[in-house]
Amino acid sequence: MKILITGGAGFIGSNIADLLIEENHEIVIVDNLSQGKRENVNENARFYKCDIVNAEELELVFTIEKPEIVIHNAAQIDVQTSLKKPSLDAEVNIKGTINILECCRKFGVRKIIYPSSAAVYGNPKYLPVDEEHPINPISFYGTSKHTPEHYIKTYSRLYDIKYTIFRYANVYGIRQDPKGEGGVISIFIDKFLENKSPIIFGDGNQTRDFVYVKDVSKANLLALTNGDNKICNISTQKQNSINELFATMKDLLNSNLEAIYKQERNGDIKESSLKNEKAHKFLKWNTEYSLKEGLKETCMYYKEIYDVKNEVAVGIHD
């Protein structure tokens, strides 16, 4: 299949692209490189530097490529940015998605796969959170990720475009940028390798459901042929506290650093865990990585990069 991935130079998008290329799919990547990196793009993919907010640029890519399926990863994903710049957040996440859907309509795209977020649920009324949980976001990011779900379902009804909507838990793994999209795991690793104490906002007892990016990529692969017109949580259905996460990473990286605790931030949820039975049922998907296995692979990936950079720096100064 020919598949167009928006945000394909970013963390999750590039991992998905790699897996789909391994499975012999033809991959087209659209990314404006505001957060993604050109070096993340698989050499076997065709790349267009293009902003999804620019409807004319986007339509030109669709005119040339005419993809069968779109995986729409491009987004503004930072909660704090959404609170400071709600207009920017809405422009990228809502208007950008409408531009994608218009191209899907005009060029006969068969299906769109859209990653929403656990942020749409807000503070959970019960755990684990299932897909029928009330929608009550506590950040503009949660709102801007949920609104496109309605557009997607309406486009599906009007124009017969199939969809699978994912609500991701906290995704982590290789290529997550600690200075850009800023997942807590990549930020902690960056601090540990720089021998600086990681910062924990709040008391560290807040919990998250951490799912490895390779498991997320597998869900996208399965959605090419399964889960039509379904909304599925993608998660491990397990809770891990930030304190537990810190201790595990400290051990994996053989560090003596202690965390610095600061006041909790607005828009941060206290507890989170997503039920994943629908993903099992409709996608035949299961997680393959435990948190420790995923963390070990991720930590080793970043440590190798850090060691190489240090060797180069030493060589330059020598």
Rank of each mutant, 00 (worst) to 15 (best):
L19D: 06
D190T: 08
K270A: 14
K284L: 13
N276H: 13
W285M: 05
I98C: 10
D89F: 01
G13V: 03
I16T: 01
L221W: 02
A279P: 00
F282P: 02
I165H: 00
T63F: 12
E271L: 14
I234C: 02
Y289M: 01
E59D: 09
E22P: 04
I189D: 03
E311D: 05
V61Y: 05
I138V: 15
D307M: 08
Q35Y: 12
L193F: 06
N220K: 01
V109P: 00
N123Y: 15
K106C: 09
E102V: 12
P124T: 12
I3A: 02
A118P: 01
K191S: 12
K230C: 13
G142P: 03
P198R: 06
N286E: 14
R265S: 08
K106A: 12
S117Y: 00
I135C: 11
N44W: 04
F62M: 05
P124Q: 12
I305V: 07
I5D: 04
C103P: 02
F201L: 08
K281H: 12
E271D: 15
C103M: 12
G267L: 10
Y114V: 04
L88V: 05
A75F: 00
D51Y: 03
D31N: 10
N99W: 06
F47K: 05
G202P: 01
V211C: 04
E26D: 15
T154A: 15
R110V: 11
V92D: 08
E57N: 13
I27H: 01
L60R: 14
E131N: 07
G7R: 02
Y126K: 14
D31W: 03
G202W: 08
L158T: 10
K214V: 00
V216W: 01
T287M: 02
G10M: 02
I174P: 02
E288W: 09
I185P: 00
L291I: 08
I3E: 01
K284N: 15
A279N: 03
Y155R: 08
V70F: 04
L20P: 01
L83W: 11
F107W: 15
A313E: 09
N15M: 05
L58G: 02
I29V: 14
S34N: 13
